[in-house]
């Protein structure tokens, strides 16, 4: 699966897509592949304030637990309720219907510092 060009990436394999002051966050195809079948997503509460690199949520596969970190600071305005019953969305469609949360961005500069798709692709080839 290709990494979409309309968003930014982190070294922890999260993606962030900015639309106005709202950022949608998920994990990349590489991340879901490493996790294997996702069985549970512990979603945060709407309204929670979160710092950049703060703990956003926990994603579980059968045999592992991964913390997902927030690429930017902000307030959680929406969570992907569909994941409660269909955590597999993260595996099947990580960049679209498998999104995890939407944040109201507090500091726009933070996202500017994240990796571009090209930089992330290069990063992936380095770690593999």
């Amino acid at each position: 699966m290709e990494n979409p060009t309309d968003r930014k990436y982190t070294k922890e394999h999260e993606w962030i897509k900015i639309d106005g002051n709202i950022a949608t966050v998920g994990i990349t195809d590489f991340a879901q592949d490493q996790l294997t079948d996702v069985v549970f997503v512990e979603l945060p509460e709407v309204g929670k304030q979160i710092e950049q690199n703060g703990n956003l949520c926990v994603v579980e596969s059968v045999k592992s637990v991964s913390d997902i970190f927030s690429p930017v600071s902000g307030e959680i305005v929406e969570v992907n309720k569909a994941l409660e019953n269909s955590p597999a969305l993260i595996n099947n469609d990580p960049f679209e219907s498998g999104w995890i949360v939407k944040l109201k961005v507090r500091n726009e500069i933070e996202s500017a510092q994240l990796m571009t798709p090209e930089e992330y692709n290069k990063f992936l080839t380095e770690i593999e």
């Binding site: 069985v39 579980e60 596969s61 059968v62 045999k63 592992s64 637990v65």
Partner: peptide, 12 residues
């Protein structure tokens, strides 16, 4: 639901 357990979640 083994991710609750020590062999996976360890100190948590």
């Amino acid at each position: 639901l083994c991710t609750r357990e020590q062999h996976i979640r360890r100190e948590k």
